[in-house]
């Protein structure tokens, strides 16, 4: 079954991406997923300030530069994994090297 591991990080976390130790943690985790043969997709994203949020305003659009206004945690990236059940997906979620300020959300992929 397919699940998404949605990673959210604080602004301090994003600042730490330049630190090789922090980066190594993510490289190591990604390698572990691939080695286990369960990673089916995913992507890391650049910092929230580099994004732009588009909303509808009637027939028009509202365009705001990032970061996304609500919440201290911002989307950092996501993994798509294929594992036997939800418990296993949670187990892999505990290995994601988020800091104490980050989080990992596990959600099943929509089957079309």
């Amino acid at each position: 079954m397919q699940y998404a591991l949605i990673v959210r990080e604080s602004s301090r976390d994003f600042a730490r991406r330049a630190d090789p130790t922090y980066r190594d943690g993510w490289i190591a985790y990604t390698q572990a997923l691939i080695q286990a043969g369960i990673m089916t997709g995913g992507a890391g994203l650049t910092a929230p300030e580099t994004g732009t949020v588009v909303r509808r305003k009637g027939e028009d659009h509202d365009v705001q530069d990032g970061p996304y206004p609500e919440g201290k945690e911002q989307l950092g990236g996501f993994y798509l994994i294929d594992v036997p059940d939800f418990d296993t997906a949670l187990e892999w979620a505990t290995r994601v090297p988020v800091s104490a300020e980050g989080s990992v959300e596990v959600r099943p992929r929509l089957q079309m």
Binding site: G25, A28, Q31, A32, Q35, P97
Partner: peptide, 17 residues
């Protein structure tokens, strides 16, 4: 790197790093 990626403890991860 494999051991680090599979760790669920930040302290152990640090140690291995």
């Amino acid at each position: 790197l494999s051991a680090i990626g599979l760790s669920d403890s930040p302290a152990v991860r640090c140690f291995l790093m």
